[in-house]
Amino acid sequence: MPRGTLEVVLISAKGLDGSDFLANIDPYVILSYRSQEHKSTVAEGAGSNPQWNESFLFTVSDSACELNLKIMDKDNFSQDDFLGEATITLDAVFDEGSHPETSYNVVKDKEYCGEIKVALTFTAERGGAGRDEYGGQEESYGGWNESARDF
């Protein structure tokens, strides 16, 4: 079970399909991992190829293994438009520690609608209380550990 910090560097997107016919889209991204959520700045007037270059940190404390990136278009006089989303499986990042800049497909209604580029780094929690002799997290089962040590 991985424990530590996941850093997500939101770099850019390209080829986003917008629904604003008369104006450029103003995209932003909602990044979510389990119950944690971050929102990027709005790339005003950036159109279908925005640049963000922003970093976000998530606390990893369980085996959840997906990061969701939801791309939205900021609208001033109506509800923001959903442009698409990308789901990133994190197993390889937890195993390897990092994943270089990579483009992921943005999908809306099962249709390709652009790409989003991110870099990922996982920093495992080191040492501390509750660790067993092998460096892993010690498990507690309501007294089982204590009684098992007596044998």
Rank of each mutant, 00 (worst) to 15 (best):
A64N: 06
M1E: 10
Y104D: 02
A23M: 12
C113W: 02
W144V: 02
L69F: 08
D132Y: 09
S55N: 13
Y104G: 07
V106N: 11
D26Q: 06
V60I: 12
D91V: 05
F56T: 06
W52K: 05
R3A: 00
N49D: 15
Y104P: 04
D132P: 09
L120Y: 03
Y104M: 11
S40G: 06
S61M: 03
E66A: 03
G128Q: 03
E54D: 14
G128R: 10
G143F: 01
F58I: 02
S61Q: 05
T5G: 02
D26S: 11
A64P: 00
T87M: 08
G142Q: 01
G130T: 09
V118E: 07
A148V: 10
E7N: 07
W144S: 00
G84I: 10
K39V: 09
S140Y: 10
S19D: 15
D95T: 11
A86D: 07
L90W: 11
E54A: 11
Q36C: 04
A92T: 06
T89D: 10
N53E: 14
A46Q: 09
F82A: 08
S35D: 11
G4M: 02
I30M: 15
A119S: 09
G4V: 03
V107W: 13
F122V: 01
P27F: 09
F77G: 03
S103T: 13
G97E: 06
G136I: 03
L10S: 10
E138G: 04
G18I: 03
G15T: 09
E115Y: 13
E138Q: 13
R3V: 00
V9I: 10
M72V: 15
N105W: 09
K74W: 14
Q36D: 02
A129S: 14
I11A: 03
E101Y: 01
R149S: 14
V93G: 02
N53C: 03
P2A: 01
S12C: 08
G136R: 15
E146Q: 07
A43Y: 06
D81N: 15
C65P: 00
G4S: 04
K110D: 14
A119N: 01
D20W: 13
L83E: 10
I25T: 12
N145L: 07
L16S: 03
R131E: 01
L10E: 09
T41L: 04
M1A: 07
K14Y: 14
N53L: 12
S12Q: 12
E66L: 00
K110N: 15
T123P: 00
R126Q: 12
Y141C: 00
N145G: 04
G4D: 02
T89A: 05
D20M: 13
E111D: 14
V60D: 00
K108S: 15
M1R: 13
Q79T: 15
T87Y: 01
D17G: 02
S140L: 01
D20K: 15
A13W: 11
V106R: 13
K108L: 15
